[in-house]
Amino acid sequence: MAEDNKTPDTAAGAQASGEKASNGKAPSLNILAQYMKDLSFENPGAPRAITQRNKSPAININVNVNANPLSETDYDVVLTLNATAKEGETVVFNVELVYGGVFRLSGFPKEHMLPLLFIECPRMLFPFARQIIADASRNGGFPPLMIDPIDFAQMFQQRMAAERNKTAAAPATPAN
């Protein structure tokens, strides 16, 4: 007799059906802690910058993500946001936030770790960091700066491409 409803006993089949991975553990991603490492708000033209604005300033936003292992399963993921508002060459305000989280990742294949650390983890931190930036700009006397959602997958792909290009451009070391 043939058994048609039997699922193959493979890691791919287990992962596709939401069961345990080949290492015997169901994959899990948990946030153990979130923290603000650094927050800086500069309003160099206050109080004139607040009261004498004719138009909205040009805002430049920079984003960076870093991850460091703390143990075999725990990682510190740090999201750095820097927003500078300028009118011409004059800085209206500058806000920088370094916001981090400690994540526990277990049961994932090794090849999934970098995308999890550089895409999923910052995606989970971003709404909290966005609110802190909005509150800081509002508390500085400006309208709340609501940063648009960030495509962390695209950032990760660009970072990986830059790493590949850097590796390819490095001169070969001759063997002695």
Results as ranks from 00 to 15, higher is better:
residue 56 S to I: 11
residue 28 S to E: 10
residue 166 K to A: 14
residue 47 P to I: 15
residue 3 E to Q: 08
residue 121 C to V: 09
residue 127 P to T: 01
residue 43 N to R: 09
residue 38 D to Y: 02
residue 94 N to K: 14
residue 106 S to Q: 12
residue 26 A to D: 01
residue 133 I to H: 09
residue 93 F to M: 10
residue 123 R to A: 09
residue 129 A to N: 05
residue 52 Q to F: 13
residue 96 E to A: 10
residue 52 Q to S: 15
residue 108 F to T: 12
residue 170 A to C: 02
residue 120 E to A: 12
residue 132 I to R: 04
residue 83 A to T: 03
residue 160 M to H: 09
residue 77 V to W: 12
residue 17 S to H: 02
residue 83 A to N: 05
residue 34 Q to H: 07
residue 11 A to K: 04
residue 56 S to Q: 10
residue 62 N to W: 02
residue 103 F to G: 03
residue 90 T to M: 07
residue 108 F to I: 11
residue 152 F to C: 01
residue 151 D to Y: 01
residue 22 S to C: 00
residue 125 L to W: 11
residue 11 A to Y: 01
residue 82 N to D: 06
residue 108 F to L: 09
residue 136 A to Y: 03
residue 105 L to D: 15
residue 37 K to C: 02
residue 136 A to Q: 10
residue 81 L to K: 00
residue 164 R to G: 08
residue 97 L to I: 08
residue 31 I to L: 15
residue 124 M to I: 14
residue 133 I to G: 03
residue 166 K to I: 01
residue 72 E to D: 15
residue 157 Q to N: 03
residue 159 R to W: 09
residue 149 P to C: 05
residue 25 K to V: 08
residue 133 I to W: 05
residue 168 A to K: 11
residue 9 D to L: 03
residue 165 N to T: 12
residue 161 A to E: 15
residue 27 P to Q: 09
residue 44 P to G: 05
residue 1 M to I: 09
residue 176 N to W: 12
residue 15 Q to N: 01
residue 37 K to D: 09
residue 162 A to G: 02
residue 72 E to A: 10
residue 127 P to W: 12
residue 139 N to Y: 01
residue 122 P to G: 01
residue 58 A to R: 14
residue 15 Q to V: 11
residue 162 A to P: 00
residue 70 L to Y: 03
residue 101 G to E: 00
residue 133 I to F: 13
residue 36 M to C: 14
residue 38 D to K: 14
